[in-house]
Design a protein around this nucleic acid. Structure first.
Lengths: 112, 112
DNA sequence: CTCGACTATATCACGACGTGACATATAAAT
DNA sequence: ATTTATATGTCACGTCGTGATATAGTCGAG
């Protein structure tokens, strides 16, 4: 299991799924799985409620690719944090979202 | 093949894939498949180059669900336009993108 | 006139992904 | 005592984007 280059990571993770984006955004502070679910529900005002399969599956994959790491292993709670690689990835993804947003505003009127 | 309700359409299409989003955004004016590919390449400044499988596959699905309709059938060119249903869908998707953008800006600094 | 590049559409197999159901267990509240 | 909330995990399922492959007309360069 070799560490992937940042280039390869970007290729496979961008465009990021909404799920992965909000999980990583939520990890702007260390959190455990269930905490992420609640936090994402909060910042999306109840719109996005992550299923357990989604959260633990995604977290496992992100951990495999060194995008998140284990911050602390408490009793019946694994607390994760985002790695430097993960931060780089998020910066790229945020740039892409800004592009989408700009284009959305540019053409918005045509759909009204 | 019954017409789906707007509610059902939103459920299955949102969150929208980047691909579907840019195809529909591009259809703010009637265009044919190849024209969409070139237009998307242009507005994303070369970042997103849609493959033929992606464009014709997605267009077929969008047509099936009455999100796009055929505007004109020219010789060796099928020109598509977005339907009213498609416009409603896009309005919802644009709102979601605004939410993502807002949250991205809110937490952006934590990843730098 | 011929050859390559561009225009244009279509299909199919492949791998990746999100989801929800199901399972398990503890703790707190009613 | 029972329900609700906390907390993690697995697995089958359907969907999706992608790239390879195929086909064919147009147009300019040499």
């Amino acid at each position: 299991m070799n560490r992937l280059t940042i280039k390869k990571i970007i290729e496979t993770y961008i465009p990021m799924t909404e799920t992965a984006f909000y999980i990583l955004l939520s990890l702007s502070e260390p959190r455990h799985g269930y905490g992420i679910i609640k936090h994402v529900e909060e910042i999306t005002e109840g719109r996005l409620i992550l299923g357990s399969g989604t959260i633990y599956g995604t977290l496992k994959k992100l951990q495999r690719d060194h995008i998140v790491t284990v911050y602390a292993d408490e009793l019946r709670k694994t607390i994760y944090e985002i790695s430097d690689l993960g931060k780089q990835l998020m910066n790229h993804e945020i740039e892409r979202l800004k592009e989408l947003h700009t284009n959305a505003l540019k053409y918005e009127e045509e759909f009204k």
